[in-house]
Simulated scan of single mutants.
Amino acid sequence: MAEAIREISASEARSKFSEVFDAAYYGNPVVVRKHSKTVAIISMELLESLADLEAKNDTLKARRALKEFLKTGGTPMSQIRKELGFD
């Protein structure tokens, strides 16, 4: 089972890089702070989760844009291509 998220200073991360890397590899995220500011989060699982959320958000935005396009009667790409002489 994964441990709680560990927080360490930037200097500690630098001096214990292999330990930090191993923790992240085995599913234990590490937050690196410098002067009380988060500068890095080392975790593949978290990175993958964020990428999934970003993809879902992009999909929602695209669906909203398409819905708005259809609602306002925008010009279809086929018509634009024809008007520009690409067809």
Rank of each mutant, 00 (worst) to 15 (best):
S18A: 15
F69K: 13
V39H: 09
G73K: 10
S49D: 14
V32A: 02
G74L: 01
S15N: 13
A51P: 01
A40R: 11
L47W: 00
R63T: 09
L84K: 04
R63H: 12
I41V: 15
L84F: 02
F69Q: 07
E54H: 01
L84M: 14
F21H: 11
V39F: 09
A51L: 07
K56H: 14
E83D: 15
V31I: 07
K82Y: 00
E7C: 06
A13P: 09
S43Q: 07
K56I: 03
V30L: 06
K56R: 09
Q79W: 00
L47S: 10
I80H: 00
L60F: 13
L84H: 03
P76V: 02
R81I: 01
T75H: 04
E83A: 15
A62Y: 05
F86T: 03
K34H: 00
E12Y: 14
M77T: 12
I41A: 06
K71D: 15
K71T: 12
D87F: 00
D52G: 10
K16I: 02
I8S: 09
E45S: 08
I41H: 01
R6M: 09
L66Q: 11
H35Y: 01
E48H: 05
K71Y: 10
Q79I: 09
D58E: 15
V30T: 06
A40N: 08
L70M: 11
D52N: 05
R81P: 04
K61W: 00
S11K: 05
D22C: 01
M1T: 12
L46K: 07
A13H: 08
P76N: 04
K34W: 05
K71M: 10
E48Q: 11
G85Y: 00
L53E: 15
V32S: 04
A62F: 00
A4L: 14
A62S: 14
L50Y: 02
L53R: 07
D58G: 13
S78A: 11
D52E: 13
L70V: 11
L47V: 01
V30C: 04
Y25F: 11
K61V: 02
M44N: 14
A55C: 09
S43W: 02
M77P: 11
K71V: 06
I80A: 08
A40V: 04
I41P: 08
L50T: 01
A65K: 00
L47K: 00
I80Y: 01
M44H: 08
G85A: 10
L47G: 02
Y26C: 05
S78N: 12
G85R: 05
T72K: 09
D58W: 05
S49C: 07
S78T: 14
A4P: 15
H35T: 07
M77L: 15
E45T: 06
R6F: 08
L53V: 03
M44C: 12
N28Y: 11
T72W: 04
N57D: 10
Q79K: 08
T72Q: 10
P76F: 00
G74A: 04
P29E: 01
S18M: 11
A62P: 12
L46E: 08
R33V: 02
P76K: 00
N28C: 14
D22H: 10
E54D: 14
M44K: 12
T38E: 09
G85I: 07
T59A: 15
V30R: 03
T59K: 13
H35I: 00
I8N: 08
A10I: 03
E3R: 03
G74S: 05
I80T: 12
